[in-house]
């Protein structure tokens, strides 16, 4: 009746708050990587709306943290999504968001345990969420982190 299922590698970016110095280079890298021009100045100064935004940065005194989608193995946002815009790629295990199918029902905003999805009520749509930089070897935020606070974690799913 029950057969074994194939193991899958789960990839995600994690931030070690012990090392995060609040430089926000991860945010800069995310914006640039997801811009049309891939140019840091154009990405921040001329492209509208501003691209990227997959990293949520917080700071309180000396502690800082930049969190992006954890690409959960058991994503509540995918379960709750009313349209199927939020989906877990069956091949890569990545949690991907298709803005064309998003109607801004806010189910993901309501259910994400880490509070990562960013609503855009005026556009009636979710703002950009982390896509692990498509097929890139290393997500831009990880590559840009001077301190290995942002790290790429890969683990086999149980």
């Amino acid at each position: 009746m029950v057969t074994a299922k194939a193991a899958r590698r789960r990839r995600r970016v994690a931030v070690r708050e012990e090392y995060c110095i609040g430089c926000r280079l991860c945010e800069v890298a995310c914006v640039t990587r997801h811009s049309r021009s891939r140019d840091v100045v154009a990405a921040h100064k001329t492209e509208s709306p501003r691209p990227g935004g997959g990293v949520r940065f917080e700071a309180a005194g000396p502690v800082s943290l930049a969190v992006s989608c954890r690409h959960c193995a058991d994503p509540l946002c995918v379960e709750a999504c009313l349209t199927g815009a939020m989906a877990r790629d069956p091949g890569t295990g990545r949690v991907v968001h298709d803005p064309a199918r998003c109607v801004g029902c806010w189910m993901c905003v309501m259910t994400c345990p880490t509070g990562v999805p960013r609503p855009d009520p005026a556009a009636h749509r979710l703002a950009f969420k982390c896509d692990l930089c498509g097929g890139d070897d290393l997500p831009a935020c990880v590559a840009a982190c001077p301190n290995a606070a942002a790290v790429l974690v890969e683990e086999d799913e149980p």
Binding site: R56, E58, R70, G115, V153
Partner: peptide, 19 residues
Amino acid sequence: GLLDLPADLRRRLVDAPPP
């Protein structure tokens, strides 16, 4: 934000590898 959550809960949510 996450920084307003109890530290042990925050660490569990972020689930970063140990330093």
